[in-house]
Design a protein around this nucleic acid. Structure first.
Lengths: 339, 339
DNA sequence: TTGTATGCGTTATCAG
DNA sequence: CTGATAACGCATACAA
């Protein structure tokens, strides 16, 4: 192909060929110097590496991919980058992937299953695997994608597909016990996104633990996870007669805090608030009592699962289901039941 | 001619060849049916597309890249995903890139220039261009990368390299005027990251506007942008004798808010606080007076600049420097000087 | 309008 | 231990 059409890489990058020429060896030898050095005489390796360094040679991933069928890329797809619980997970995924020699594509589904599906379809032909955080897609669709590429789920529980679950049930149960211990008799659970696995899990944990301890539990809906939704829920919260609330996440909890402050209700003097995820906890005032999230660990673990599976030649694994348990972190928004 | 078994892990994705066979045309025709349909007879195009659909054919980007030198990928590199001012920008970049048919790599430099350099070097051979947010790399290093690939900067001002700058100077000046109007005579600027272009810009704007209005201005250092740094700065803030503070960003401002609350100092009754970026503004209590950020627009604009340049064949453009101006958003953390 | 023949940069096979 | 050389899947001059 002539350069009648300008190409992205207008400057001709040094290829394996130019390195071979400079080093005075064949192209095959240059290739081996990088992929299987132990196959070559050490001095040959050194010679090649030297030439490569001088020329500033960088292997062309497209060519490598074409030849090997491996891309050196992973993709991470999330429902909403803006949710503060996501960035630490992305960060961990990126770090871990980088350490394993992978670059990472980021996809944002904006909570739309169709968009998520499309994203995956477009990314598939250039990645070796996927990490899907809190996927909103249907189970069958996920299974189909998992067939095309190794895929690890975070906070989505589908049998047969490797998954990492942050088990907030334990921490939430601790929160309920903590509140019961402080004398609260009636408490509220402020719900999160309807189709979220985490929400179902937390709601159940509150209910079950409350029942066990003989507390009255009311569940309040919130349209979504946002500061505003939390603030707007305060009215219903007060009407419910509860003296304490466990919110689906820190964002909602923070909104509740703001709503209570607006009405001049003191926390924790007159009302107790607990959140979940520990993403904003040290950033509220008073500092929020919450359940630790371990989002970073979840991300890192997901990548480990993925890369180990890729390393082992993509062989099928037994059903993998990693649970990360959580604990309550008591700070300053929970206190004794007001008298 | 044809190998009966693929080298890579049994991946039998349909190729242009299988489509050609099924459609009863040559491989070149299949290629053209997708890239230059107007070159073919409509019925031929239909025939090919039909076969492709039946086989579930998806073009192989690696092969395409190898042949054309174009990848269909962009990379966005940021200093810190966890900073709340970044995710909206990433989100906008992703959206805009997707609309233009590009997938996006995400890189996190963790504020480390060397790591940023390495990231770019590794990504270069598989992307058509870069968006660098608040790059921490030296000017010469950036120029070198810009020579290898089209590159657009956000919040970094280097002549000759296309850049999008969020001009917070205007908004910050308005904040100072606002505080002066409220009777404050001595105000503090709480600094952000030392090597940040935005910090230099904001510091200057506070100083200049303060001087113009005859205010006393003190500048306080903060190690970095974080809630904690803000909280810890409160001591120095109070000692400085200032009655109001403009913080480098909302994170710091929020920390200051918490530090003041801890000491029982009422906001805005006894002290006024203004932030910058408008990322947490509605999430604090009281709601934070701040300077609008337009991070989403900055990201989207950067991608537009990049894709338009790619579209035009990578030809050199005249020096592009887009300034997005900002305005003060008055909420509830600023009030009259205490008497 | 369509087919043929190359070439892109790398790895893998097979000789030497 | 090293060198030829054939794929890998696609796009494009060049022919027809």
């Amino acid at each position: 192909m002539r350069s009648s059409e300008p190409r992205a890489a207008a400057r001709s990058a040094p290829t394996i060929g130019s390195v071979a020429e400079v080093a005075g060896v064949s192209r095959a030898t240059v290739s081996r110097a990088f992929t299987r050095p132990q196959m070559l005489r050490p001095e040959t390796v050194e010679k090649v590496r030297d030439a490569a360094r001088r020329l500033g040679y960088v292997p062309n991933p497209a060519a490598k991919a074409l030849s090997t069928g491996r891309f050196g890329n992973l993709a991470m797809v999330v429902p909403d980058i803006a949710n503060p619980y996501i960035p630490p997970m992305i960060s961990a995924v990126e770090e871990q992937a980088d350490a394993a020699g992978f670059a990472v594509f980021l996809g944002n589904s904006a909570e739309d299953p169709a968009r998520e599906d499309l994203l995956l379809r477009k990314l598939t032909p250039q990645v070796d695997g996927f990490v899907l955080a809190a996927s909103r897609m249907g189970e069958d669709v996920i299974r189909r994608h998992a067939q095309a590429r190794p895929l690890v789920l975070v906070n989505r529980d589908i049998e047969g597909i490797p998954r990492v679950l942050i088990d907030t049930a334990g921490g939430v149960a601790q929160a309920v016990e903590h509140l019961a211990g402080l004398g609260h008799r009636r408490l509220a659970y402020l719900s999160g996104p309807p189709h979220s696995w985490a929400n179902a899990q937390r709601r159940r944990a509150v209910k079950r633990t409350g029942d066990k301890l003989g507390l009255e539990v009311v569940t309040l809906p919130a349209r979504l996870s946002s500061h505003d939704a939390g603030r707007q829920a305060v009215g219903a919260l007060l009407e419910s007669g509860a003296t304490a609330v466990v919110a689906f996440d820190d964002l909602l909890a923070q909104g509740v805090l703001a709503g209570l402050a607006e009405r001049g209700i003191r926390v924790p003097g007159e009302f107790s608030v607990a959140g979940c995820d520990d993403v904003l906890a040290a950033q509220t005032f008073p500092p929020l009592t919450t359940v630790s999230a371990r989002a970073r660990e979840a991300g890192a673990t997901a990548v480990e699962l993925l890369t180990s599976r890729l390393g082992s030649g993509g062989g099928a694994m037994s059903d993998v289901r990693v649970m990360l348990d959580t604990t309550l972190v008591v700070r300053a928004t929970t206190g004794p039941r007001p008298v």
